[in-house]
């Protein structure tokens, strides 16, 4: 574990360069399972980082610590200049800046698509409803489902639902987007429409951390690819290095299995 002088002095890294800084993060589940065994990761502004790894390697757990959906027992995480602690105000402040897209979409089934998008900006950011609705319609346009705005999530296909979920996260204007296996629950023919939206997003300024098994997406879009195994970060490299000349045996074995 390397400690930078900045972290040692407990001061905050300038927010304009480093968006997420995780150092030596360790987590045990209540049943004693050691899920994260000292993970380090640094994500710069505007960067797209893809995390890969076999199931059970802790990659989902790791990114869920970034917005405090999972707690951790050891180590340190700084998100957008705010150190994650048990202080609830801190957590709320971080969650406002970090959007998340889930494997199971987790749209609110009792609200229309449009209300799914506007709920949080109106309640949390206290913005005017009419203005948020205009922005929401523009976002739905961007992900290609503006005509479904008054439908309920249950009336949409999986791919459409996931695109709504991305638009919902964007409507809070987050600086960081976390994707937790966004295409794993989709039928194969719907994977592409979601990945296209994510590609489109990556061209923007937004910082993205993506847990996925989509090799092509990682190759084409990621700035860096990270391999996690058994709760540790094994390898971290630009995609052309990661997929062609990985330095770790564990990475080679993983790539043999999926390619």
């Amino acid at each position: 574990m390397t400690t930078t002088p900045a972290a040692a002095a407990n001061t905050v890294v300038p927010a304009n360069t480093v968006m997420i800084e995780a150092q030596g993060v360790q987590k045990w589940y209540p049943n004693g399972f050691h899920a994260l065994r000292g993970c380090d990761l640094r994500v710069n502004r505007g960067e797209v980082v893809v995390i890969m790894g076999p199931s059970g390697s802790g990659k989902s757990t790791f990114i869920r610590t970034f917005n405090a959906l999972e707690d951790f027992q050891k180590g340190r995480i700084v998100v957008d200049g705010i150190a994650l602690s048990n202080d609830l105000r801190n957590i709320d402040a971080i969650r406002r800046e970090v959007g998340m897209v889930f494997q199971q979409f987790n749209l609110f089934p009792h609200l229309t698509v449009l209300d799914n998008l506007t709920l949080a900006p109106v309640l949390v950011r206290k913005r005017a409803k009419a203005e948020v609705e205009r922005q929401a319609m523009a976002l739905l346009q961007r992900v290609g489902i503006a005509e479904q705005a008054s439908k309920f999530p249950g009336q949409l296909s999986g791919g459409q639902q996931q695109r709504v979920a991305i638009a919902r996260a964007l409507c809070m204007e987050p600086r960081i987007l976390l994707f937790d296996e966004p295409t794993s629950a989709l039928d194969p023919e719907m994977v592409r429409e979601v990945l296209d939206v994510m590609r489109n997003l990556a061209e923007d300024d937004i910082t993205m951390v993506v847990v996925t098994h989509e090799v092509k997406f990682a190759e084409q879009v990621a700035h860096r690819v990270v391999l996690m195994a058994e709760g540790e970060v094994v390898e971290e490299a630009p995609p052309q290095v990661f997929f062609n000349t990985p330095s770790h045996e564990r990475t080679r074995r993983f790539l043999d299995q999926i390619l």
Binding site: G99, N106, L119
Partner: peptide, 27 residues
Amino acid sequence: VPTGQVEAARSLGLSQARALQHVVLPQ
């Protein structure tokens, strides 16, 4: 109500009470 609903609401920045009022209880 699946736990994912609370997680989604919380990750959007809704407080515990707001998540309960607008997401969990209606369902």
